[in-house]
Design a protein around this nucleic acid. Structure first.
Lengths: 204, 204
DNA sequence: TTTTGTTTTAACCAAATGGTTAAACCATTA
DNA sequence: TAATGGTTTAACCATTTGGTTAAAACAAAA
């Protein structure tokens, strides 16, 4: 009946764990902090997820899945390449608006514990990151887009889309120190400027 | 005599602390880990720096200083604006080659503890971040460069310069999973592509 | 109402962690 | 050589932290 509104304890924990792990990482996060954030007793964490690592695993797994899920738009081969990249830009920037720290979370934890990555992602075989590269290489061969260094392009693209959300807090601070405000950061502006970069890079 | 080669214990500690704090952050870092990395007894850390926070402060202070130091090239008003930005790109990318995690370290710690930032940086009054913005605004007024959203441009510039070094580990993993290698990442290529972005953005 | 199985909590425990201390070490100088 | 003062260490200590347990609270079925 009321289950529609009701948020299960397990979900509350996962939500809280996501928040705390993203902020502090696996080592920096404290179970008590997660429990407090979820508004429950610490023992419940262990009741539902056995231990810290298992809980972290769940969170990390979910993060990875969502992250790579964003890349699925590349698969829509009915659209021209450039359009697909545009769609991706819209996608990923909306995504980062919701989870600004996501990319750093994944990068950090992967580089601290590479095994986890192999385990979680190679197993899932859901990496679409490579497919963009292949698509671009294809497009170059067929003459659809400019001849570029694809790996470099992909990195630049990622940079433009992720970093603004990571750096936002620092940037706002700096602006404040210099007595300026950046009231009107909106992701639409960013989208537009990234797309213009994409256009410049791919259009012959 | 032999002091030229000799690295003082204090320096060893700071070096190790930098490494560990950058990896794990203030909360995630362990004093024992720092001691081990420095190859000394844990008590020595406290002998030289009293406690964890003081040690962290020193590390963070040094990081901030180096970080903002990179922006000093903007001050050389004898050069045209675009050239100054080019010089900055060279500068900052060399800098990140040496300290790939620097920007994330600063961003993370600032957003986790904004007070620290104000304390350390506003006090030092050494923030040059704002000056680029002013310089660009000036350049627009004088018609030297295109009319752009300066804040957005600065963020994009930062993105292109920092993120590649942050994401490198993840990116290499992904490429590996997709049975590709990215042997030839060299910062020169990156510099070139960032400069081309700058050129596109600023040239009328 | 009683029974049964699940969820939640308070009270613990052992290990890890930041920090202290007293003694040992070592280089310099009296 | 002996004394001095800075440096380093092993052995501790107190608190925090991840994790356990046994009992209480709760909901649903018998």
């Amino acid at each position: 009946m009321k289950k529609l509104i009701h948020i299960s304890t397990e979900e509350k924990i996962l939500e809280a764990a996501k928040e705390v792990f993203m902020k502090y990482g696996l080592y920096g996060a404290r179970m008590q902090d997660i429990a407090d954030t979820a508004g429950i007793n610490k023992a419940l964490l262990h009741y539902y997820f056995r231990n810290k690592e298992k809980l972290f695993d769940k969170v990390f797994e979910g993060a990875l899945q969502k992250y790579f899920q964003q890349m699925e738009v590349f698969s829509d081969s009915s659209l021209p390449i450039k359009q697909r990249v545009f769609n991706y830009v819209d996608n990923i920037i909306d995504f980062y608006s919701e989870y600004p720290q996501m990319s750093m979370f994944i990068i950090k934890e992967v580089s601290l514990n590479p095994e986890l990555f192999k385990q979680k992602v190679m197993a899932a075989k859901k990496i679409k990151g490579g497919s963009l590269i292949s698509i671009l290489e294809d497009g170059i061969e067929k003459g659809e887009i400019k001849k570029i260094d694809v790996a470099l392009f992909v990195i630049n693209l990622q940079s433009l889309c992720s970093y603004p959300f990571l750096a936002m807090p620092l940037f706002k601070h700096i602006l404040k120190v210099n007595h300026k405000e950046w009231n009107d950061f909106n992701s639409n502006k960013l989208k537009q400027s990234v797309k213009s970069f994409v256009d410049n890079s791919l259009t012959k």
